[in-house]
Amino acid sequence: MIKIVNLKKGFGRQEVLNGLNLKILNKELVAVIGRSGGGKSVLLKHLIGIVKPDHGKVLIEGVDITSVSGRELDRVREKFGVVFQEGALFDSLTVYENIAFPLREKTRLGRGEIEARVNDALEDVGLKEMGDKYPAEISGGMKRRVALARALITEPSIVLFDEPTTGLDPIISSSIHKLIKKTHRKYKFTGVIISHEIPEIFDVADKVAMLYNGTIIEFGTPEEFRNSENPYVRQFISGSLEGPIEAL
């Protein structure tokens, strides 16, 4: 379970997270939606301890990641797989090497076992023939698939997705969403997806949280979101310029 308690973070005079509370149950796939620059990626970085909060706790399966360091912090991070915005694949490694990287560095598996697992992962994401390519030689959609395969290769219990479909066309976005759902069913991880893709994300997530002004203003199932009476939620989902959220 992931539990975020009264999380506050500011950069200079700008308050990005302002007393945020959120509870994500095991094996739940939760989408966090909200305005661009609203602190969604900052929230995600708090979950893996890359950013330290000014105040509050982030409990990952009972351990407060904000108060641990060194080996203890590594042990918490080992529970995670992360799919970064543009994939964050290592430029100097091939697709195969990128996926094999966490296994080579973090486990004592033999070459044969690693090869079998990487080939399975490549097949899972539909990139069986692409192992020898470098990240610069593949498309944006393929990069996200490789990033997903790399995130899942160690079979983590929690997977974080930072805008996994940003910049992709609607068809590729749909295929990535479908892939996230498929892998979630297969690996049964707890997932957090940062996304702008509305309403598509409602078909992927079990629950949705809306971040506004540094706090979660609505949390519920996609159905509850669709029927929400909250004027902020209604305006955000409809993409309307009229409403309490100011269009900049």
């Binding site: 991070r77 992360v82 543009e86």
Partner: peptide, 10 residues
């Protein structure tokens, strides 16, 4: 974010 990717892998 390749450096963050390394960090996230512990």
């Amino acid at each position: 974010e390749q450096i963050d990717a390394l960090t996230s892998m512990a």
